Simulated scan of single mutants.
Amino acid sequence: MLEKHRSLRGTLTSKIKKSVFVVFSENILLPINTKTSALEISQ
């Protein structure tokens, strides 16, 4: 049950991320990850 919940959460997260990039386009909203510094994000 827990694995199914994690899978659904991951799927939902992926769909939200794709939707955000469709709305704001990749030119306006650059991708960030866990290694991106706070300074880079704020710029």
Rank of each mutant, 00 (worst) to 15 (best):
L12Y: 14
L30N: 04
K18Q: 13
T36G: 03
K15E: 12
K17W: 08
T11G: 01
H5D: 05
E26M: 05
I28W: 04
T36M: 02
A38M: 07
R6T: 05
L29V: 11
E26T: 14
M1F: 02
I16A: 06
P31L: 10
S14Y: 05
L8T: 07
K4P: 00
L39F: 06
L29K: 07
H5R: 10
S14N: 12
L39A: 06
K17I: 15
I32T: 15
P31Q: 14
F24E: 13
S37C: 05
S37K: 14
K4A: 04
K15A: 08
L29F: 03
K15G: 01
T13H: 09
Q43K: 11
A38W: 11
L29D: 02
I41R: 06
L29G: 00
G10T: 10
L39K: 14
A38N: 11
S37P: 01
I32N: 02
K4H: 01
V23P: 00
T13S: 08
P31Y: 14
T34N: 11
R6G: 00
H5L: 10
K18C: 07
T11Q: 09
R6S: 01
F21M: 08
T36S: 11
T13E: 08
T36N: 01
E3K: 08
S14M: 12
N27C: 02
Q43T: 04
K15I: 12
S14T: 14
A38C: 10
I16D: 03
Q43R: 13
T11K: 11
V22R: 15
E3T: 08
K15C: 05
A38G: 03
F24D: 11
S19N: 14
N27R: 13
T36K: 03
S19M: 13
F24L: 15
M1Q: 04
L8M: 03
I28E: 05
K4T: 07
S37G: 11
S19K: 15
K18Y: 10
I32E: 10
F21K: 04
Q43Y: 05
L12S: 12
P31V: 13
V23A: 15
S37L: 04
E26Q: 10
A38Y: 12
N27L: 09
K15M: 13
L12W: 10
F21L: 06
E3Y: 05
N33R: 14
K35D: 10
V23H: 14
S14I: 02
Q43N: 09
R9E: 09
F21N: 01
A38P: 00
S14L: 12
P31C: 02
L12M: 15
V22E: 15
I32K: 12
F21S: 03
N27M: 07
E26D: 09
F21V: 01
G10M: 09
I28L: 07
S19G: 05
S25T: 15
I41M: 07
T34C: 03
F24K: 15
E40K: 14
I41W: 04
I41P: 00
I32W: 07
I41C: 01
S25P: 00
V22Q: 14
L2R: 04
L30F: 04
L30A: 09
I28T: 07
